[in-house]
């Protein structure tokens, strides 16, 4: 009887989240909403054109100093920034557009920085002992990754495996920043920057889809999407950039203009409450779980390398968030709450 109890306790411990799925840190159940069934996601999978690893991930990234990067980056060029354990890194968008995934290591932790050009989304994931790769498939135009350990398939925005041995599990995320080179180096002057020495030959001066500096081609807000979606909404032009976050209780999006103008946005979601703070330096947001609805004023906040501090925010749990094109966000989260600046959503 006693040994049976120990076995039950062990089984409970093994099933508790987070846990490691074949070397990959995952959570079961996932910590984010899954609006469609996994079967529906699998049915909506599309070939993106290139085959598996046809868009090759960068597995041995090389970095240069911010001073050296000045020769190849303009202030308004988009970068994906990462800060962890006192180390800052910038991954230029014009390199990631050709690779979509960088399997990197920061502060002794194995991570993947991922970017999907077709949905304008950058997310960071912990990868444990394995690596993430580009499957060549898309769902809602979004990059579908696979892990080398189990070959499970993970749409990037969803962060949950839709196929393979880890189907239904969620990846462990960490925050990365979709910002500009000028803003990132101002916040992190000692940042290291990914170089073009990727091990592959690509024309890194050219983005095959368009341009962010200045904005053009596929990235224009009113331009059409290329692939079908599971759910559509005409509320905003398809490529309008929104700032979104999701929890087990649902998803919420804020228009960039509303966030910039109001600087602090209160968002109820499910039975809970969240405070979103605008970071003018990086032109992005920070999301905090604020269940007691404590008042937060932008005047009491300080923005530095470690993030946003002050006004008691240290006591709140930080929630991951990221920018995305509207058509993709609403395709994954058709029931999303949306805040456009007219008051409480």
């Amino acid at each position: 009887m006693h040994s049976r109890r120990i076995l039950v306790a062990l089984a409970t411990l093994l099933l508790a989240s987070p846990r490691v799925g074949a070397g990959l840190p995952t959570a079961d159940p996932p910590e984010m909403p899954v609006a469609h069934s996994l079967a529906a996601f699998r049915q909506a999978l599309q070939s993106g054109g290139p085959g598996k690893d046809g868009i090759p991930s960068i597995d041995s990234p090389r970095f240069q100093s911010a001073v050296a990067a000045e020769d190849v980056l303009e202030d308004n060029d988009k970068v994906i920034g990462l800060y962890a354990d006192g180390e800052a890194r910038a991954y230029p968008q014009r390199i990631l557009v050709w690779h979509e995934i960088v399997n990197d290591e920061v502060g002794g932790k194995a991570i993947s920085v991922t970017y999907c050009p077709l949905t304008g989304t950058a997310l960071g994931f912990e990868r444990g002992d394995t690596q993430l790769g580009v499957s060549g498939k898309l769902v809602n135009s979004n990059l579908v990754m696979y892990d080398h350990a189990t070959d499970s398939e993970w749409p990037q925005i969803l962060g949950v495996a839709i196929d393979g041995p880890l189907a239904g599990h969620g990846l462990e995320e960490f925050r990365v920043f979709w910002t500009t080179w000028g803003a990132w180096k101002a916040r992190h002057p000692d940042t290291r920057v990914l170089t073009e020495q990727t091990g592959y030959v690509r024309n890194y001066q050219r983005d095959p889809y368009g341009s962010y500096n200045p904005r053009g081609g596929y990235y224009l807000p009113q331009s059409s999407r290329l692939f079908p979606v599971m759910a559509g909404s005409d509320r905003f032009p398809p490529k309008t950039e929104i700032f979104g976050f999701r929890t087990e209780e649902g998803a919420a999006a804020i228009t960039r203009d509303a966030l910039r103008e109001e600087t602090v946005v209160e968002m109820p979601l499910g039975d809970s409450h969240y405070t979103v703070v605008h970071d003018a330096g990086l032109d992005t947001g920070w999301v905090f779980h604020n269940p007691r609805r404590a008042e937060v004023s932008i005047d009491g906040l300080r923005f530095g390398p470690e993030g946003v501090t002050g006004a008691g925010l240290e006591e709140f749990e930080r929630v991951n968030a990221f920018e995305a094109m509207w058509f993709a966000w609403t395709a994954f989260y058709p029931d999303t709450r949306v805040y456009t600046g007219e008051g409480m959503p």
């Binding site: 054109g49 889809y209 059409s224 999407r225 290329l226």
Partner: peptide
């Protein structure tokens, strides 16, 4: 069709799939 659906972007056609 393979890596960069340039023509489809120019034409704005959602038929890349």
């Amino acid at each position: 069709a393979c890596c960069a659906p340039l023509v489809l972007i120019w034409l704005g056609l959602p038929i890349a799939g």
